[in-house]
């Protein structure tokens, strides 16, 4: 995969909802570009449009106006099936409430996206799932079910599931929202490591300023618009940011 185009390019993206007789603009003409290797925090008060943005970036929702380029391809007009295909092949999604299948083991949960992506036999799926679980430090938890795991561990299974298809982009929606401080820090450092060491592009929606500043770039939303877009304090405090742009050829 070439990295000439940005991972994400939103041009005038608008998402309107019909609420009763009123039309609510959850996203109001968003322009946003996120390049390969970036780690971006999306912050803002509740109802500012963060989650709608996340759903749009995650190809679970489509904009009512504007264009969304993912890896250089316009995905704003794709069909339900085509979007499902993109979700299963190009995106990793991490949820606030982990969203693991409660009856399945960690390994089976991580394996799930590969079942829908198709083209992987059982052995290949297991190998990829083990690799992903090893990557998040859960090599001793393959056969544990979610209830047997701590919140932090469950979220790491969630991250492994996002990783298993080896996507360039990982979207995390309040990934630490249900975790204590210690587990939150573990999860964030895991995501940072994926960004720093594996070159994954990471977008995190968060309320938590500490987590926002642990990324590289902070984008602030209010009323469906971007009202702030700045480098994080971590980047500022360590001097001029290392180029956050394309890291061609390294990730694949």
């Amino acid at each position: 995969m070439t990295h000439d185009a940005p991972v994400i390019e939103l041009i005038g993206v608008t998402r309107e909802f019909q609420v009763g007789s009123q039309v609510v603009k959850a996203l109001d003409g968003i322009d946003l570009t996120i390049n390969y290797g970036e780690m971006v925090a999306i912050t803002g008060p509740s109802g500012s449009g963060k989650s709608t943005l996340m759903n749009t970036l995650g190809c679970l929702d489509t904009p009512t106006a504007g264009t969304f380029f993912l890896n250089g391809n316009d995905v704003s007009g794709l069909s339900d099936d085509q979007l499902a295909e993109i979700r299963s092949r190009q995106l990793g999604f991490v949820f606030q409430s982990y969203n693991l299948l409660p009856r399945e083991t960690a390994l089976a949960n991580v394996e799930l996206p590969l079942k829908y992506a198709g083209g992987f036999n059982r052995r290949a799926r297991w190998e990829a799932a083990r690799r992903a679980l090893d990557r998040v430090g859960l090599d001793h938890r393959y056969d544990h079910k979610p209830v047997q795991l701590s919140g932090g561990e469950q979220q790491r299974v969630g991250i492994a599931r996002a990783l298993v298809i080896n996507p360039d982009l990982i979207l995390a929606d309040e990934p630490t929202g249900n975790l204590d401080t210690k587990s939150s820090r573990e999860v964030i450092s895991m995501l940072r490591s994926l960004n720093d060491d594996d070159g994954k592009t990471i977008v995190i929606v968060t309320h938590d300023p500490e987590i926002a500043e642990a990324t590289k770039r902070v984008v602030t939303f209010r009323d469906g618009r971007i009202v702030g877009d700045r480098p994080s304090e971590r980047v500022l405090s360590t001097g001029p940011a290392e180029p956050a742009g394309p890291r061609s050829g390294e990730t694949e």
Binding site: G58, L60, D80, D81, A84, E85, R87, S88, R89, F93, F95, N99, L100, L101, L112, P113, Y116, A117, R161
Partner: peptide, 15 residues
Amino acid sequence: REIGIRRAVGAKRRD
């Protein structure tokens, strides 16, 4: 919820 999870990780309606 399970259906939502499956859809989010790439299941099509048909699946």
